[in-house]
Design a protein around this nucleic acid. Sequence first.
DNA 1: TAGCTCATGTAAGCGGTTACATGATTGC
DNA 2: GCAATCATGTAACCGCTTACATGAGCTA
Lengths: 206, 206
Amino acid sequence: MPRASVPNPLHHALLGLVSRRPLSGYEILKRFSRSIVFFWSAQRSQIYAELKRMERLGLLTSRLAVQGGRPTKRAYAITPAGRAVLRTWLDRPTPLPPIKDPLLLRTFFADLLPPERAAEYLRDHGEAHARLAGEFEEISRQLERRHGPLAATDDRALFFGWLVLEHGIRYERMYADWCRWAAGEVKRRGRPRGVAPSPADFVITS
Amino acid sequence: MPRASVPNPLHHALLGLVSRRPLSGYEILKRFSRSIVFFWSAQRSQIYAELKRMERLGLLTSRLAVQGGRPTKRAYAITPAGRAVLRTWLDRPTPLPPIKDPLLLRTFFADLLPPERAAEYLRDHGEAHARLAGEFEEISRQLERRHGPLAATDDRALFFGWLVLEHGIRYERMYADWCRWAAGEVKRRGRPRGVAPSPADFVITS
DNA sequence: TAGCTCATGTAAGCGGTTACATGATTGC
DNA sequence: GCAATCATGTAACCGCTTACATGAGCTA
């Protein structure tokens, strides 16, 4: 059995999914794009490639499952080594996520743009986040209709999924609120007036 | 002059900084790590490497600035081509950021962990975010003390920096609140009881 | 017969991290 | 003398995206 080496973060997501029950790449893909993708983005091609790699590393095993009337699929199952990697990762502290937010970067340099333009894209962006918040809220309502109050559900996976979904709702609401607020501030302030600015020494922190 | 080709996202951050006034790699680094790094993470080595590349691409020019008593530094200035790239980017719509949050991924699979352990790391993580929120609030207070009410400042770069800083405060507060809330829900729910769960078909969305 | 869902991959290349590597000056 | 600050890079590697590539079966 090959040594597990250093697993990459996507490994954890895939191990977690497959640990629940054996899945084909396509089934993983569907589940992934309905839940995990909202907090851990990845492309289809990467998922297929990593599944292969994880099998080489001994984290997964696969067998071809011939189906009547449908294309043959490759079903992956977690190995003891894979389960060990998953457990170890779950038990170790998590680093704060490095943030890469193009809208904030753009806003930081929005002094190079007419204020109306900045206010406009902030408003637009806020609407996109508000829509997302609405979608997440709708999903949450659907789940409650189907499973009852999620805070007390017996399904532990569903319970933790609900916690993460709630994060999504709060995040999107916060972002939408900020966009509206920022657009308002930009509009209120209006066009530059008075003395010339001194951008030379500007930094956020002292 | 070489064609500008497709600029990578870090280019925009560096162009934005250098557009204010010519800066050496080291000066860029300091400014970057005091402001931009909070919403666009990057390593020192990448910054030096990209500056070189951007000069090859014709976005920046540099000259060696000999200083008395200090190491010679290389001062970068933006070129007209660089300014054009920056303007174009500022004027185009921004995509929603792909999210990669290891804590949410971990929480999604926290059903594989004892509930006490999950509650514990959620609490810890919440404290880290609360600390960050506090630091950002302190920076905001310092800026207001030095420059007066930021909503009305004449310095446009400072104004937009303040908007982005406010996003950081709201984000960290939201995250800290969610962690506390989630830790509470996990504790309240306690150890698994009753019927076995059915994780096989679990997905967040229908 | 056209479009959808099911089903699985490869290749090139880039954006980014980690580790390695060096050296001058200032202040305690 | 030692640590901190100032100052600048290179090399290896990997995680990930984008684009390319294929094909079966089901339904309107």
